[in-house]
Amino acid sequence: MKRLSTIIFICFWFVVNQAWSAEDWYMKSSGQLLVKNYSSNSQLENLFGFGVFLNGDYLERGGFSIGYNFNQTNYKSGLISGLKENNENILFLSGRANFNPDQIPGRLTLRLDGYVGDDATSFRVTVPTPGPMGGGSSQKTITVDNEFSVVSPMVSFLNYAKTFYADLGYAYSSYRSDDSGTDDINVTQWTPTLGFGFNQAYDWLQLRGYFIDLSTSNRVGTKETTSALEVKWTHWFSADAPLMNLHNIRLTVITGERLYAVDSDACSLCNVPDLQTGLVSIGAEWKLNEQTNVLLQGGYESYEDMLLDEQYSSTYLYGYLSRNW
């Protein structure tokens, strides 16, 4: 809570220290849907999620983003553990400020993201009911709550020619559980990133390393560190593009291991306590007009449940619609 107050204070300070003009604000609203299906997992069935975001940029000087995400994970029916579903709420708040120092040929951006959220895992349990004939039993749903917060500052650089990008991101995540049998966990993450533009700005290649340290917790077994490499390639099309005037296509590959990762591009948390061991996704974006964009993405992920010693995978579909105002 203290961290959130700090974030809000910094954002407030940034806002009141500018001479704002309403017509110089560039606003964008967006919504997203996520449908995920798990396979080879003895417990997880599927996931449904949606989110809404509002972005505001004051000219090129800086901006803010606020967002809300809801995810519902459904478990297989009839599990001995009684697991039923998990409902997760995530509030996202971000502020950024741009600088153009004369000493370097590009733009520096300082960004601070904050996430706060909770999730509730519900179990269906059978409880004995007392009675004159020895009693019986009835089913009851109990929930276990988790709370989490993430603070993630980042410094980035993009050169004016838009051929080179670099950033260094840091994230500190803290997960707390109401269940006394589940340990709390703190996670620190460093994400150095390099990006390269080529083919006359028609192509962009981005490499991001994830270096994650985990505190000791029974959530993750003996795992203390993970590292992964994310490679993203985006290709933009010119005006006569195929497939209903496609604007761009993108391919993402993650290799290595990630746990409790914070994705600063997607502004999302990967907070399933299972080890992500790979990801491949492809996406296509259409610019419907000057204001409206649509993105469709499909992907395959592989995971390892370290507590059950089980490897499983998921396939997902993701849709994103944005509009500039």
Binding site: S21, E23, D24, Y26, D57, L59, E60, R61, N100, R107, Y160
Partner: peptide, 10 residues
Amino acid sequence: AQQRWREVAS
């Protein structure tokens, strides 16, 4: 020179 296009337009 600093590619602040929106400010230029403004």
